[in-house]
């Protein structure tokens, strides 16, 4: 397995409902990332379609594999790069059950997908109205190491990142569509999730304005000690590339050994208390 990986954070704005235009933009940014020797390029939550879609989700959602994942697979194959992007996924078994999904594609095809576990339905968010929640962590063995996927609001729930880490991921990719007033939360939580799990964390957020909601960008790549390796601009499209070195995890695991000190018996209590909140 590779020890060092160059990761591109590709914070784009999307044309809502225009999958063709968004796939084209994903390819443009994948090419730019590859030109700068990136091996993995990450796009925001629902980057295939844009975020505020409401009832349009029913016509935009696609099965995986499907025409859009086929197109992204082709991009990954053609340019020899791994890609993470977000899309509304139509369940294989029903006709209108949709997941908010992150997809990991490599040069040899689809590697895996993760269905968002925590769907915000408060304030400006209405995800539970449209999406079914996922039940599985998304951790995948790749040529670039073991990569875990989480999505946006999941980061407020340390259990998801913890599970992803305990299933072996060394790099957690968090794709996001976070509006500006929540910036401080994410800037803190991304660092916290990296430190408490001694893991690399790549956070990629949407930019642009959708129905008056402004997305703040500010994507960042964070080392297991909380150091921000590289960060993207606020509020505008940007592509930044940082290198991660998995050997760094060993140093921080000996310095702040959070995984060694994990207390399994607490999780039973957590479950018991959470069921009776």
């Amino acid at each position: 397995m590779k020890q060092k990986v160059r990761v591109a954070l590709s914070q784009i704005s999307c044309r809502r409902g225009d999958k063709k235009a968004n796939i084209q933009k994903i390819e443009e940014y994948a090419v730019k990332a590859k030109q700068q020797s990136a091996e993995l390029v990450i796009f925001p939550e629902l980057s295939l379609t844009g975020y505020i879609l409401r009832d349009d989700l029913y016509k935009l959602a696609e099965k995986i594999p499907g025409p859009s994942t086929n197109a992204i697979e082709e991009v990954a194959r053609k340019h020899g790069i791994h890609i993470v992007f977000g899309m509304p996924e139509l369940s294989e078994k029903t006709q209108a059950t949709i997941y908010n999904t992150a997809v990991l594609v490599g040069p040899k095809g689809i590697i895996g997908k993760y269905r968002k576990m925590h769907l915000p339905t408060h304030s400006v968010f209405e995800e539970k109205r449209y999406f079914r929640q996922g039940y599985q962590a998304g951790v995948f063995e790749t040529d670039l190491g073991k990569i875990g996927l989480i999505i946006c609001y999941d980061i407020f729930f340390p259990e998801v990142s913890r599970l992803t880490r305990l299933e072996g991921s060394q790099l957690i990719v968090c794709i996001s569509a976070s509006p500006t007033i929540r910036r401080a939360f994410f800037e803190n939580l991304t660092v916290a999730r990296a430190i408490e799990n001694t893991v690399f964390l790549a956070y990629v957020n949407l930019v642009g304005v959708e129905d008056g909601l402004q997305f703040w960008g500010g994507s960042r790549l964070i080392a297991p000690n909380g150091r921000v390796i590289v960060s993207a601009k606020y509020d505008e499209e940007d592509l930044v590339i940082g290198e991660i070195d998995y050997t760094e995890i060993r140093q921080i695991e000996t310095f702040v050994p959070t995984l060694r000190d994990l207390r399994a018996e607490i999780f039973d209590k957590l479950r018991e208390k959470a069921e009776n909140l």
Binding site: G17, I52, R54, D55, D211
Partner: peptide, 15 residues
């Protein structure tokens, strides 16, 4: 089935 103001929930703009 779907009604303006109740459950037609479309994006405000299309771009």
């Amino acid at each position: 089935y779907r009604t303006v103001g109740f459950d037609f929930r479309l994006p405000y703009t299309q771009l």
